[in-house]
């Protein structure tokens, strides 16, 4: 080493760092058996199990598996975003990964880009798996025409809101274990009161009102509009799918989540 060091103030292009982080996050997720089983396989087991056991006729020729497609995809998206983010970011904060990253010139945006890519990949994989099982095992009917568009925007908006919410929960939790213990029951309860496992009109009215505050209900409702015939819109609280309200509420949750993330996000456990 005889050459003089140049001023090492240059930084690599952002795009390359984003690409690195996306690769890191995908490997971290898909190589961990527990997270793959919990997030990807669990909804499939739900679909196979509940689809075989439960047998309501919802009218308009809709059986339970057809109804449950919207619900189980909601559960899959919530698992890939809300639960995944809350538990794993809390873990990365507790074990020092986040603090260590903070001491490098990696821009904060790259960390979040990596997480977004991870959520997208896991959510898409979950949805594809569920559609395959739904069609092959339960013979459910796939969406048609513009329903695919609705499917896409509702899923993306719902996943975005739940991802941001998950990041906020990860920060409120004291550590990874408490994040898991907090977010798992929260997600389950939200799914129950949002009509994921049972028809939404069987949820008591006051619980429907509680559910309407949170994004999971609107994600599930938007997805029901995709998988159910319009005749069943009459069984929704407003007597219609309310897609405008779905977009509005999910959008508001995205904005609120982003603000809360910016205000609360920490790269290390609390001081002292």
């Amino acid at each position: 080493m005889t050459t003089a060091a140049p001023e090492r103030t240059a930084l690599p292009p952002l795009g390359r760092v984003y690409l690195t982080r996306a690769g890191v996050e995908l490997k971290e997720f898909f190589r961990q058996r527990e997270s793959v089983v919990f997030t990807l396989v669990f909804p499939v087991i739900l679909l196979l199990g509940l689809g075989a056991v439960l047998d309501y006729d919802l009218g308009a020729g809709v059986d339970f598996p057809q109804y449950f497609m919207a619900g189980v995809i909601t559960a899959g998206i919530v698992g890939a975003s809300l639960q995944n983010m809350a538990i794993h970011i809390a873990g990365e904060r507790s074990d020092g990964t986040l603090k260590s990253l903070r001491g490098t010139p990696m821009p904060a945006s790259a960390y979040f880009v990596g997480k977004v890519v991870q959520v997208l990949a896991v959510a898409v994989a979950t949805i594809v798996l569920l559609l395959l099982v739904g069609v092959l095992v339960h013979g459910i009917g796939l969406p048609s025409g513009t329903d695919w568009m609705t499917f896409a925007w509702v899923s993306v908006l719902g996943a975005a809101a739940c991802t941001l919410l998950g990041i906020v929960v990860s920060t409120l939790a004291r550590n990874a274990r408490s994040a898991s213990a907090t977010v798992t029951p929260i997600a389950l309860v939200l799914q129950f009161v949002s009509g994921v496992f049972i028809p939404f009109d069987q949820v008591p009215g006051w619980l429907q009102d509680v559910a309407a505050v949170f994004p999971v209900k609107w994600l599930a409702q938007g997805l029901r509009s995709v998988f159910l015939p319009d005749a069943l819109a009459a069984r929704e609280p407003a007597g219609s799918w309310e897609l405008g309200t779905v977009a509005l509420v999910l959008g508001v949750w995205c904005v609120a989540g982003l603000v809360l993330c910016a205000l609360t996000f920490r790269w290390q456990d609390r001081e002292g």
């Binding site: 090492r8 103030t9 930084l11 890191v24 490997k27 971290e28 190589r31 961990q32 873990g91 990365e92 074990d95 020092g96 990964t97 603090k99 260590s100 001491g103 490098t104 010139p105």
Partner: peptide
């Protein structure tokens, strides 16, 4: 500035799958 520093913390690299 951070690009010129190296930091070895007490709690190191976490439980990575990489």
């Amino acid at each position: 500035w951070k690009a010129q520093l190296g930091i070895v913390l007490q709690s190191g690299a976490g439980d990575s799958q990489l």
